[in-house]
């Protein structure tokens, strides 16, 4: 449920690092807590964010939830597919339901993120 190749935040985002680009999404726990996701708002390509900045919004039928940047950097891609089919975030949170790709600026910011085991421990 919490893939080991990802890192996680307290706010239930995950990142997958490939070179200097990180893919960002929300965890299975987060999508399950939110329930049916009906709307996703994402930033534009080339927008800059600091670590912890609100960069998007995920809305379920009942809840509006901000998405925060796990690491600072520049948006290189936003997932257009989830704008049209927000339920991808429910059905495949670590795959087709990814949200943005960010070129991160400071690798040391990763130190504050959790591995799968530590993240899972915060949920219990």
């Amino acid at each position: 449920m919490y893939p080991e190749d990802l890192m996680y935040t307290e706010n239930h985002e995950w990142i997958r690092v490939e070179g200097d680009v990180a893919t960002v999404g929300i965890s299975d726990y987060a999508q399950n807590e939110l329930g049916d996701i009906v709307f996703v708002e994402l930033p534009e390509v080339d927008e800059d964010f600091g670590q912890g900045d609100a960069m998007g919004v995920v809305e379920s039928v009942k809840a509006v939830s901000d998405i925060y940047m796990p690491v600072g950097g520049t948006i290189v891609e936003a997932n257009e597919d989830v704008l049209d089919a927000p339920d991808l975030v429910n059905s495949d949170p670590y795959g087709e339901g990814w949200l943005v790709k960010v070129r991160f600026s400071d690798e040391s910011e990763m130190d504050s993120l959790m591995n799968a085991e530590d993240y899972q421990a915060t949920l219990e």
């Binding site: 329930g35 049916d36 009906v38 379920s60 039928v61 009942k62």
Partner: peptide
Amino acid sequence: PVQFEGIIE
């Protein structure tokens, strides 16, 4: 209960 299976279902 706010939901069982899911609000939309």
